[in-house]
C-alpha cells in the first residue's frame, strides 16, 4: 500500500490528522505523523520527516502532506537525504493538510493507484464546504 506521512509545525495537529484518517482508512495503511521538533517545539524537522518516510515505505509510493512555512522545505530536504532507492517514490502533495489527509487515506485504502491518490488530494483542495444557495 501507499505510505502516508503527515507533517505539521504542531505535533498535535499531525497526530490528530493521523487519528482522523484511521477513523475511515484501512487499518493496514501506514500513516505516520512527523510534526513538531524533536524537543517538542512548534516547527518541523527534516530528519524526523525522513524517518517517517522510511517507516511507511514498503516498496510502493509514499506521499507527504505538509502544512505551511518550513514544512514543505523540510519535506524536500528530507527527500534529498533519502537513499536513492526510496527517493524516486516520494511525492509531496499540494493539498490542505487535514482535508487532504483524510481524502488521501480513504483513496489509498481503496487502491494503490498513485494518480487516483493525487486526484483525491487535488479534489480536497477544491472541495466546497459551504454552499450558499
Amino acid at each position: 500500500m501507499v505510505g502516508i506521512v503527515i507533517v505539521s509545525h504542531s505535533e498535535k495537529v499531525s497526530k490528530g490528522a493521523v487519528e482522523l484518517c484511521y477513523e475511515m482508512a484501512d487499518k493496514d495503511l501506514k500513516i505516520v505523523s512527523a510534526g513538531g521538533t524533536e524537543d517538542g517545539r512548534i516547527g518541523t524537522d527534516a530528519f524526523l520527516i525522513k524517518e517517517g518516510i522510511e517507516e511507511v515505505y514498503t516498496g510502493n509510493e509514499v506521499v507527504v502532506l505538509a502544512d505551511i512555512g518550513s514544512s514543505i522545505m523540510n519535506a524536500e530536504m528530507a527527500i534529498d537525504m533519502l537513499d536513492e532507492e526510496i527517493k524516486g517514490s516520494v511525492l509531496i502533495l499540494d493539498t490542505p493538510i487535514i482535508e487532504g489527509s483524510i481524502a488521501v487515506a480513504v483513496q489509498a485504502s481503496i487502491s494503490n493507484n498513485i494518480e487516483d491518490i493525487i486526484k483525491a488530494a487535488e479534489d480536497a483542495k477544491q472541495m466546497k464546504k459551504v454552499r450558499n444557495e
Binding site: 521538533t37 516547527g43 524537522d45 512555512g69 518550513s70 522545505m73 523540510n74 530536504m77
Partner: peptide, 15 residues
C-alpha cells in the same frame, strides 16, 4: 542546523 533549528532557517542555512 538542519536537525536542531525547527523553522525555515534550519533547512535554508543548513543547505
Amino acid at each position: 542546523l538542519i536537525s536542531k533549528v525547527g523553522g525555515a532557517s534550519g533547512p535554508l542555512y543548513g543547505t
